[in-house]
Design a binder for these strands. Structure first.
Lengths: 329, 329
DNA sequence: GCTATAAATGAAAGCGCTTACATCATAGGC
DNA sequence: GCCTATGATGTAAGCGCTTTCATTTATAGC
């Protein structure tokens, strides 16, 4: 690959001038710009971004840490973020944290050493302290789906509690009173918040929560199956089920089919997230919409504004969930 | 962040020695190694990988181009590849090609300028010539799900034709004779190959293909819905439907529900890919398994062997699809 | 036509690291 | 104890670019 030096020689100008036409930082005379551009084209030159990054201490790349690369949720998030940045010539480096504190730390440090200009983090396991320290280093980053009050300006979140509230409220409005709940792992912030929302919806109807109708799952499909099986095995009556995400709801629906429970007649089921295939289930799943795409977009715009000084005015930081009624309730 | 220079000063050795303990290229005396490691720890030093990359012309990062970041298919692929590399301290940089030749070229060039040690490509739109030229540059890369004979040693593929054959053969064995087909965009290699497989299955049963039972979709869910609607509107009789991927099959199932067609009694449906939620459909979808995870793993191992000289013996390059029978046929 | 000023360009240092090559220390053979 | 072979360490030259500062060239004012 040709270097900037060869280009400058061919165009009969200095390195510095070539660099200027590449970066458009300082005006260059029209005629020399044309010469340089011609030389670049003839040599098929492309700047070596590693060298650029080293010299300028700016990499034009944004690091992203998510729990998993697979799955509908992260896929859409990543996709949206990549799109936003690509449109302005920035690029993303992605690492998976696998909901494990050590891996999350590892990923973050790797991205740092990679000279990322900013980070977008969806991390669940590192503690608040770590994130506070990270903020103190001056590295710009935005935190998705997690609120750490001391660094609130870094956080973009969904109101999970309200989402949990909406889900249960919907069932209550339909007349259900015996409502089971399959939660995500409660050490995860969002799982806990959703559950809190569920509880306060019950409270607002003056219903006392029956702890035996609670099951702590793993946010996976199998967790939903096991959860419903467990709840049914207890022999307690319930007519509706809230699942803290759609995957578990899909699992629960499978288990319900197996138990010959008609949905929604004998058991109403509601999910959470509105992942892109939540309507593949039968019956189509009622759920709470998690505006992943918007949140991804907002995270990208946060970075564009704060790090690259793009003129962006509205940065939303707390998103509202929304009830999507389909056929399962 | 501390630099290697500060470490060397603190440890009372030269830059070069520090570099040696980092890279373990040349033996260093035990006692000095310990001094250096202590200094690194005390300073919280982490090598700047951008500088490493520039100096060594080696980045320890692998570029990946896929069509989309979202979606179950690519998610799993990426996830597996990332896993493999992370385990050996390499990292991935991901770009989306969006099935568009210009974006695909763009992404590849970006990854090149990023000093990637190797590329893993799932590209559909650039032509064979471009890939041949790319191979000629000496940049190591592996091509997933596409066979370009002149650079066969770069290709890892699924036998799509056989998959298409298996799908249709399955329906034929069940006694179906009037079999409709919803294809992917035929300019895509895999779509074309799957269709060819379908045709040869028909031929092997001595059945002449009825072109009116063919619909060219877009590999998306809506394409499946529209496809089935179109086929039904024609008024021609058919008892089975092959869809060239699961998304379209899910769409077709939705359309079938709407048309009050019982599956599989009135219409048998088979998909292709076995994406992770193909069993969410109702009834659960019979499909052809695309071993994404294995292929991703193999691509990673190709790179480890060829680029990083890891001792890996078995590199499989042609994968066999497999019929997964569920409830929709 | 000459100077004062602004605009365009060039020279060169340095970003943090790797890596030939040179140098130094140590140990073994006599 | 001296010489050589070998291993450990240091020196310094880049990797391809950006950026400061100095220099040159063009523009304008008189």
């Amino acid at each position: 690959m040709a270097t900037i030096y060869e280009v400058s020689e061919r165009a009969g100008v200095s390195l510095a001038t070539v660099s200027r036409v590449i970066n458009k930082t300082v005006p260059v005379r029209e005629s020399t710009r044309i010469k340089v551009e011609a030389a670049m084209r003839e040599l098929g030159y492309r700047p070596n971004s590693v060298a650029q990054s080293l010299a300028s201490n700016r990499s034009n790349s944004i690091g992203i840490v998510v729990s998993e690369l697979g799955g509908p949720f992260y896929g859409e998030l990543l996709s949206r973020i990549e799109n936003e940045f690509r449109a302005v010539g920035k690029h993303v480096i992605i690492a998976a944290g696998h909901s494990n504190a050590e891996l999350e730390r590892d990923s973050i440090e790797f991205l740092q050493s990679r000279n990322c200009d900013a980070l977008i983090l969806h991390v669940e396991s590192v503690d608040d302290k770590y994130l506070e320290d990270l903020a103190a280093t001056g590295l710009p980053f935005v935190l998705i789906n997690r609120m750490v009050p001391s660094i609130a300006e870094h956080c973009i979140t969904l109101d999970n509690e309200q989402g949990g509230f909406l889900a249960t409220e919907h069932l209550l409005q339909l007349g259900h009173r015996d409502i089971a709940y399959i939660s995500g792992p409660l050490w995860k912030h969002d799982a806990e918040e959703r559950y809190t929302g569920h509880q306060s919806a019950l409270a607002s109807y003056g219903i006392e929560e029956d702890k035996t109708l609670f099951y702590e799952g793993d946010f996976q499909e199998t967790g939903g199956e096991q959860g419903l099986a467990h709840l049914l095995a207890q022999g307690k009556k319930f007519t509706a089920l809230v699942c803290a995400n759609d995957e578990m709801a899909a699992g629960a629906i499978t288990a319900a089919h197996e138990a010959d429970l008609a949905i929604p007649e004998q058991l109403a089921v509601i999910g959470f997230d509105n992942i892109n295939f939540s309507h593949y289930t039968y019956p189509k799943l009622t759920t709470i919409d998690y505006p992943v795409a918007e949140i991804g977009e907002m995270a990208a715009r946060w970075v564009l504004k704060r790090v690259y000084q793009r003129p962006i005015d509205d940065l939303e930081v707390l998103f509202a969930p929304q009830l999507i009624v389909r056929d399962s309730t």
